[in-house]
Design a protein around this nucleic acid. Structure first.
Lengths: 205, 205
DNA sequence: ACCTGAACACCGTTCAAGT
DNA sequence: ACCTGAACACCGTTCAAGT
């Protein structure tokens, strides 16, 4: 199946990330998956870096949309849940987005829409920026954390190894909070703490 | 100057990151900097991945220490400021640590000490984990953001480019808040949001 | 216009060899 | 014990060539 297109290249890249993780993405792996020579991609994508950011935008497309319920906190919560769900299937994508969100169109559109929600709620200036930033980072970090910890026993193994050199009593005691097991619970809880903090701050002003 | 050591290899790696950024780090670049064959490093470091994490730990060593003032929130704030200052000279290190903090000894020790501060303040369980996590990620994101934005005009240039395809009115209006200059203000606000969230949470229970 | 093939400068890493 | 050198399988990318 020849006659490629930019869309086909990015879609193939996204599939590759879903199956083998963000680090497996390269000009050559995408080319092989498409049954084509690496050089063929240069007709549709300027270079490797552009392939990465293109695939990231392709993956992140579903997070651009923000539903408007009339209540900004409901919007933030709904967006965080959808974003978390959208990124978890693509190992390493959340981490990549965490570092490159400012060059990623769907992320920029999401932030803009969330800022609009806050604006309509009466939250302005850097309070709005910090609030949106906090929720944005939370959703991405949870998605990335869930992926990192997915291998069974990573937490305890790492803690055990590190504890040989240094005692980590509090971290060890709270290790359960860093595991995947009760992830939904912790996601809900953390998000609620965050939203309550923003709301309390707003009420105080 | 032959007769290497693990410490010398990691120190050379850190210097290389400081001068040319995290992406410049490799077996071969470190070897050349030490005036030695790439294979010579394998005597002191098991593989490339281990070189990366070793250099990251080397760079992050100063963030392990947490000063205890008696007030946990003072400790959090002081630690975040020192961490930010420690990571900014090493381009890309904060982003790397953001993804790999759980395998990095100084980061684990810092988190443990911060959890201890919260524990002594009477903040336990998930509240403590969420609070420390948020501050930790916040400090790293700001360090990384400051590096990313260091090139003059990145924010406005990116926004202008993105705005060709999609209007980003709120983001454009608030662009100044995403620049480096506002670090202190953002830090204070982020911390306050966190504390208010915990307080609201406790009041509700 | 679109894709191929050879080539080059990079990676990490194995294995055999030097001292 | 410590380092070197050749070799191999990967990268991204340029350039000339095919259709």
């Amino acid at each position: 199946m020849k006659s490629l297109s930019t869309g086909a290249v990015l879609a193939a890249g996204a599939e590759l990330v879903r199956e083998h993780g963000w680090n497996a993405l390269s000009m050559r792996t995408v080319a092989t998956r498409l049954g084509v020579t690496p050089m063929a991609l240069y007709r549709h994508v300027p270079n490797a870096d552009s392939l990465s950011s293109g695939v990231l935008s392709f993956i992140a497309e579903p997070i651009a949309e923000v539903t408007r319920s009339g209540d900004a906190f409901t919007d933030l919560e709904a967006w965080a849940r959808r974003t978390h769900a959208a990124l978890v299937p693509y190992p390493g994508a959340a981490a990549a987005l965490l570092v490159r969100w400012f060059e990623t169109s769907p992320a920029l559109r999401a932030v803009d829409a969330l800022l609009q929600s806050m604006h309509d709620e009466g939250v302005e200036g850097f309070e709005a920026v910090a609030a949106v930033n906090a929720v944005f980072m939370f959703a991405l970090m949870r998605a990335q954390g869930e992926q990192s910890v997915r291998d069974a026993g990573v937490v305890k193994r790492t803690l055990h190894t590190a504890a040989v050199a240094y005692p980590l009593p509090r971290l060890t005691a709270l290790a359960e909070h860093y595991t995947t097991a009760r992830f939904d619970l912790h996601f809900d809880y953390g998000l609620r703490v965050l939203l309550d903090g923003i709301a309390a701050r707003k009420a105080a002003s």
